[in-house]
């Protein structure tokens, strides 16, 4: 036992690190149940901010818009990202592979201000040329987010492909399956956990995005992060604490099933 001895301070550093990460979130959650409007003075337990949140029509509308955009963009990201990840993972060398990789990864690594600006410039040019997208709302934001999410899906799918035996698909091809059939009947089912994880990640990224949506959206469309950002700029509000707590709870459950349980099963 204990053949690999740990440097003595390492467990303490791990504990301190997790405290650094989780204590601020914990305090945020605790103060969402505070009676007082002041976010820093405890005045007794109350759920009034949750009740106010439920009555905040603008907030609910923004949440609805954001959830819809996140679901739609995650689906597009997953479709294109799976194809792109497959191309990287299975097709070996193809023409312009380096360019392909660069374009695929650019949205993942470039700062969001650049992506947002470039998408808006494109929409503006398209609008002048063909009259679309006009009022930049749901579709425009969802497409911009899909661009962003595709890279993340592709990377997850490629990583999963590296762990899969190519012989399985080759066997299907040797037995006379067409390429589409082999992909749909053999490879895709095996990739499903990665595809699902990619969808969840793309969904979360879209739901969380402030910068790209701020650049791209027209005056009529306000996503949840945009609304949160503008109210945070005006000052702290326990309603935001309550909203944050709800979001953290949802994300914790999603992440638990999406990553932790999925990892443990495989």
């Amino acid at each position: 036992m204990n053949m690999v001895r740990t440097l003595s301070f390492v467990p303490a550093a791990l504990g301190a690190g997790f405290a650094f990460v989780y204590v601020p979130i914990l305090i945020l959650v605790v103060f969402s149940f505070n009676e007082s409007r002041l976010v820093t003075v405890w005045a007794g337990f109350s759920t009034r901010w949750y009740a106010e949140l439920l009555g905040n029509v603008r907030m609910l509308e923004a949440a609805g818009l954001s959830l819809g955009i996140a679901a739609a963009s995650a689906c597009v990201s997953t479709a294109v990202g799976t194809l792109a990840g497959y191309a990287l993972g299975r097709l070996g060398r193809f023409r312009l592979r380096a360019l392909f990789t660069l374009l695929l990864l650019a949205p993942m690594v470039l700062p969001e201000v650049i992506l947002g600006l470039s998408m808006l410039m494109t929409y503006s040019a398209l609008d002048r040329a063909i009259g679309w997208p006009g009022e930049r709302g749901f579709t425009a934001i969802a497409l911009a987010h899909a661009t962003y999410g595709t890279a993340f899906v592709a990377v997850i799918v490629e990583a999963r492909l590296r762990g899969l035996d190519p012989a399985l698909e080759e066997a299907a091809l040797d037995l006379g399956a067409g390429p589409l059939q082999a992909f749909a009947r053999v490879t895709l089912p095996l990739l499903l956990p990665a595809v699902a994880a990619g969808w969840l990640l793309a969904f979360t990224l879209s739901l969380d995005d402030l910068v790209i949506a701020s650049f791209v959206s027209g005056p009529g469309a306000t996503t949840l992060p945009m609304l949160v950002y503008s109210s945070v700029r005006l000052g702290l509000s326990p309603q935001i604490n309550a909203l944050a707590t709800v979001m953290i709870a949802i994300v914790a459950v999603l992440a638990y099933f999406g990553t932790y349980r999925a990892q443990n099963r495989s």
């Binding site: 990460v21 989780y22 601020p24 979130i25 305090i27 945020l28 979360t204 739901l207 969380d208 402030l210 992060p225 949160v228 950002y229 945070v232 702290l236 935001i240 944050a244 979001m247 953290i248 994300v251 914790a252 999603l254 992440a255 999406g258 990553t259």
Partner: peptide, 12 residues
């Protein structure tokens, strides 16, 4: 935390 909203973490 990476799955949790970036904005929420800064707000905290």
């Amino acid at each position: 935390p990476f799955w949790t909203s970036f904005l929420v973490r800064v707000y905290a």
